[in-house]
Amino acid sequence: MEPKMIVLEEKKMVGKSIRMTLAEDATQELWKSFMPHRQSIPDRVDERLYNLKVFDQGFDPKQFHPSTPFVKWAAVEVLPRTHNEDPGMETLVLKGGLYAVFLHRGPADRFNQTLQYIFEEWLPASAYDLDDRAHFERFTIDYYPADPEAVEEVWIPVKAVHE
Rank of each mutant, 00 (worst) to 15 (best):
M20E: 09
P61I: 03
K12P: 04
D132V: 02
K12A: 04
K159E: 05
Y50M: 12
L92A: 06
V54T: 05
Q63Y: 07
P107H: 08
L79D: 14
D60V: 02
H104R: 02
M13P: 01
N112E: 15
L8W: 06
R133K: 14
V14W: 01
H104E: 06
E77Q: 09
P124G: 13
K12Y: 07
F59H: 03
D142S: 07
Q57E: 12
K72Q: 12
E24F: 10
V76I: 09
P36S: 00
A125N: 10
A74V: 01
G88A: 13
S126Y: 02
V45D: 08
M20H: 04
Q57T: 09
A146G: 12
H162G: 13
A146R: 11
E24H: 14
Q116H: 15
F102N: 01
L22M: 15
M35V: 13
G96I: 02
T68C: 09
Y99A: 06
A108T: 02
W122H: 04
V71Q: 10
Q116I: 10
K72A: 10
K72C: 03
D129H: 15
E153D: 12
K16H: 08
V54C: 09
A75S: 04
D43A: 05
M20T: 02
E121I: 07
E24D: 14
L30I: 05
P145E: 10
N51I: 04
K4D: 15
M89Q: 07
P87V: 11
D142L: 00
V54F: 03
M20I: 07
V151A: 10
K4G: 13
V101N: 06
L123Y: 01
D129I: 08
T27S: 11
D46C: 07
A75P: 00
R110Q: 12
Y50R: 11
F119T: 03
S17L: 11
K95V: 04
A160T: 15
L49N: 11
D46L: 05
A125E: 11
I6S: 09
L94K: 11
T82M: 12
H162E: 15
R110C: 08
M13A: 07
V78R: 00
M13D: 11
L30H: 06
W73K: 04
K62S: 13
K95F: 01
M13W: 10
L92P: 08
G15Y: 09
L49W: 05
S67G: 13
G106T: 00
G88K: 13
I41Q: 02
D147E: 07
L123H: 01
L22I: 15
E77F: 01
E152D: 07
H65V: 10
F102I: 00
L49P: 03
D86H: 13
E137G: 03
Q116S: 15
P61R: 01
F119P: 01
W122G: 00
Q57K: 09
E77T: 06
M13V: 06
P148Y: 00
R133G: 05
P87S: 13
Y117A: 01
F59K: 05
F34T: 05
H37S: 14
P69D: 03
E77I: 02
V76K: 07
A100W: 03
L52K: 09
L30Q: 04
R38E: 13
E120D: 14
G97H: 02
M1A: 14
D129L: 11
F119A: 06
N84K: 08
G58R: 09
I6C: 10
Y50H: 11
H37E: 15
H65A: 13
E152Q: 06
